[in-house]
Amino acid sequence: MADSPSSFSPTLILPTEIVIEIFILFLPVYPFCPPLGGLGSPTLLTQICRDWLEIALATPNLWRAISVDTHWTVFSRQVARAEIWLQRSQPLPLSLRFGPSTPFTPPFFVAAIIPHQYLHLHLVDRTQLAALRDGPTPLLRRLDLFS
């Protein structure tokens, strides 16, 4: 009986800590954001094999930079993905980017982003700005606001 091809994968014999470092090097340097899906996204790593899926889902550093920049046609799908990333990134501070094509910054993000490090937001609603202004931001390193 022959071994399955996956049993010969060099990454499966590496210590998990080394695989995690390789995964982190696959992404743009923090605070730059990878795409939510496709090439360059940590979601791609989850699709290779079960071991990679488990490692990626257990590594908050892979999910700590989120960018949503899209039109209405796919916006709700991207927000759903971003919510999942937000959960996976816990307890780390985030880099969040909402681009000019984003219809609005979702309310759950306004509440969730206050304690994070890097924010690049295109705000449509002035109440969102008040939520940012009034909240404590002890970890904030950079805030770019656009209207």
Rank of each mutant, 00 (worst) to 15 (best):
2 A>Q: 15
5 P>A: 05
8 F>L: 15
9 S>K: 01
13 I>C: 13
14 L>C: 13
14 L>D: 07
14 L>I: 10
16 T>W: 01
17 E>D: 09
18 I>T: 08
20 I>F: 07
20 I>H: 06
20 I>C: 00
22 I>L: 08
25 L>E: 11
25 L>P: 03
25 L>N: 14
27 L>P: 03
27 L>H: 07
27 L>T: 01
28 P>I: 08
29 V>P: 12
30 Y>A: 05
32 F>E: 15
33 C>P: 06
34 P>K: 00
36 L>S: 06
36 L>R: 05
37 G>M: 15
37 G>K: 14
40 G>D: 00
41 S>M: 05
43 T>H: 11
43 T>S: 11
43 T>W: 11
51 D>M: 15
52 W>C: 07
52 W>S: 09
52 W>Q: 08
52 W>E: 03
55 I>P: 00
55 I>F: 02
57 L>W: 08
59 T>Y: 01
60 P>N: 03
62 L>N: 07
62 L>C: 04
62 L>K: 01
65 A>E: 04
67 S>L: 10
69 D>T: 05
70 T>V: 10
70 T>E: 09
75 F>M: 08
75 F>T: 04
75 F>H: 02
76 S>P: 07
77 R>N: 10
78 Q>P: 00
78 Q>E: 09
79 V>P: 03
80 A>W: 09
82 A>D: 05
82 A>C: 04
84 I>M: 13
85 W>F: 12
85 W>K: 07
86 L>M: 10
86 L>S: 10
90 Q>L: 09
91 P>C: 06
91 P>S: 02
92 L>R: 07
92 L>K: 04
92 L>E: 05
92 L>N: 02
94 L>M: 03
94 L>Y: 00
94 L>F: 05
94 L>H: 03
95 S>Q: 02
98 F>V: 01
102 T>R: 04
103 P>K: 02
103 P>Y: 06
104 F>L: 11
104 F>Y: 13
105 T>H: 03
105 T>G: 06
108 F>E: 14
111 A>T: 12
113 I>A: 11
115 P>C: 00
116 H>W: 02
121 L>S: 07
121 L>Y: 07
123 L>A: 03
123 L>N: 04
127 T>K: 11
127 T>P: 01
129 L>T: 07
129 L>K: 10
129 L>V: 09
129 L>G: 09
131 A>N: 08
131 A>E: 08
131 A>K: 02
133 R>M: 11
133 R>I: 13
136 P>H: 12
136 P>S: 13
137 T>F: 12
137 T>W: 10
139 L>S: 12
140 L>N: 01
140 L>Y: 08
142 R>A: 10
143 L>S: 03
143 L>D: 03
144 D>L: 14
146 F>G: 11
147 S>E: 13
